[in-house]
Amino acid sequence: MGNPNVGKSVLFNRLTGADVVQSNYPGTTVDYTRGYMKLKDEEMEIIDVPGTFSLEPKDKAEEVAVEMLKENRDSVVVCVFDSTKIERGLYLALEIIEREYPVMIVLNMWDDAMVRNIHVDVKKLESILGVPVVATIATAGEGIKEFVSRIGYASRVKIEDIMRGVGHYGTDR
């Protein structure tokens, strides 16, 4: 899952070898696609969904994404971010974490962030959130191996624990 136009489909194609339509426009994916990949001799099903900003759908494509999430209660959710738009990505990721899905985070378009001089401390983000975080450049195939190797470590975390880690727990309520 992730915001529109962050490269979810490119990542999906990288993982499955599929050829889902990918383009540099938000809203390219309007329905979901299933694909399969092998991880340590185990076949995994991967679902590519349309982008959404939140879990409160505002259009048909967002509805599909939210429905897919609900229908797959036992799935690991890979939250894909545009590395230059971390806050938006976090908003959605935290909503998903809050609903108690095991999550891992992919900071895609890492090259774009570098070009724009945006620095993200991957390790720190990982320690605050308590879920795996990897940086990727899906279009170039960079970081994909590390991403795949860590899917198994995706974990359910309590939002309260994250808040405590951030140090603001209880201050804004």
Partner: peptide
């Protein structure tokens, strides 16, 4: 508030 929080 909630509707636009998602875009930051």
């Amino acid at each position: 508030r909630k509707r636009i929080a998602g875009v930051g």
